[in-house]
């Protein structure tokens, strides 16, 4: 089906009816996903600086309220709004597949994520422009397709090609009917800027360089342990659980955390299982490129390049992949 670009705002109005609609746009000068307020979304150019992950996995999420004292009680917070994520790209869709695997498919279900996910509809769009640090194709993605999104839009100049990939997507398209016309648009031809030598084979070999101290010293040397990489990463999902107490009652919440921080593995009594930044960054890279694959059958890196763009110490995971590819093939 086709959708004339002139009718996009009407479609967004349909999507926003009774639901929270998130689209790419500017918030205080940073391109990111924001609540739609009638404006034209920023679908062109490079991807958002921040990933859409906090729509499904909020930076801070209340889990339950509690009361202490003689009337002690704990009450889970279950209220989740219906949401639409509009205009995310193949890399960010893959990152949601990674989080689905962690929070829903493997082992215990994480009810907080699962409830949000069940109430979210995703309309993905073909990538309109690779950034200088993009390498999603090396991670096995096609920037011009997002088969797990509910609805996918490809760019046909003055119109979008529209296809539903799921039943929910097909049901949603019925609401768009008066604006859709028959016909297809050819698949877009966006390609990545970088092509690091990542392969499934490398993923399996990476743990073999765990003890290559010299390599890890060199790779991790400039890191300042700021955690920016985790913050901008669409797949980093580590979290902390804490309580905000207001005297006799309070709320337990979880919030994003980063394995780069020195207190991440700090135990009571002083022991730290990863006391050096070399150990922490090694764990981060190997989790992304090897460990996650062992449990979930895919890498925990989607090649979006955000961590490369934003690292103040110029660490570069694509460069790391190339470096290790050389070592691993020796």
């Amino acid at each position: 089906m086709r959708l004339n670009k002139k009718d996009l705002n009407k479609i967004l109005s349909i999507l926003a009816e009774g639901r929270e609609l998130f689209v790419p746009g500017q918030v205080r000068g940073i391109k990111q996903f924001k609540l739609w307020e009638g404006e034209a979304p920023e679908l062109d150019g490079e991807n958002t600086i921040l990933p859409p992950k906090d729509i499904l996995f909020p930076k801070t999420e209340k889990m339950y309220t509690y009361k202490t004292g003689t009337e002690a009680e704990i009450a889970e917070i279950v209220d989740m709004p219906e949401r639409i994520i509009f205009g995310l790209r193949a890399c960010d869709m893959r990152s949601i597949e990674c989080m689905d695997s962690v929070f829903i498919r493997e082992g215990f279900e994480d009810s907080f994520y699962a409830r949000r996910r069940a109430k979210s509809l995703i309309v993905a769009i073909a990538c309109s422009g690779a950034g200088v640090n993009c390498f999603c194709e090396s991670m096995g993605l096609d920037p011009n397709a997002a088969p797990s999104a509910d609805i996918f839009l490809s760019d046909g100049g003055d119109c979008y090609g529209v296809e539903a990939n799921t039943e929910r997507g097909a049901a949603e398209l019925k609401k768009w009917a008066e604006y859709l016309t028959e016909g297809d648009v050819p698949k877009s031809e966006t390609h990545c800027s970088l092509a690091p030598a990542m392969s499934r084979e490398l993923s399996k070999k990476l743990t073999g360089i765990f003890d290559d101290d010299e390599l890890w010293q060199e790779v991790t040397g400039p890191c300042i342990q700021c955690g920016t990489c985790s913050f901008v990463c669409p797949t980093c999902y580590c979290f902390d659980i804490n309580q905000a107490d207001a005297g006799g009652e309070g709320v337990a919440f979880r919030c994003w955390d980063s394995c780069m921080f020195s207190d991440y593995n700090q135990n009571a009594g002083g022991h730290n299982t990863r006391p050096t930044k070399k150990q922490r960054l090694r764990n981060r890279y190997l989790h992304k490129l090897a460990y996650f694959n062992e449990r979930h059958g895919m890498e925990l890196c989607v090649g979006c390049g955000r961590c490369i763009s934003k690292c103040p110490a110029h660490l570069d995971i694509a460069e790391f992949i190339d470096k290790t590819a050389e070592v691993c093939h020796d």
């Binding site: 962690v102 929070f103 493997e106 082992g107 215990f108 994480d110 743990t207 999902y237 580590c238 979290f239 902390d240 659980i241 979880r254 955390d257 394995c259 991440y264 593995n265 700090q266 135990n267 299982t273 764990n283 190997l286 989790h287 090897a290 460990y291 996650f292 062992e294 449990r295």
Partner: peptide, 24 residues
């Protein structure tokens, strides 16, 4: 083994040794 844990179900990331989670 004992190590710092937050979730207990292999999600929060903290207690991993390689691809294994101590809590799980």
């Amino acid at each position: 083994m004992e190590t710092r844990m937050k979730c207990g179900i292999g999600k929060c990331g903290r207690c991993n040794i390689g691809s294994k989670y101590v809590c799980l």
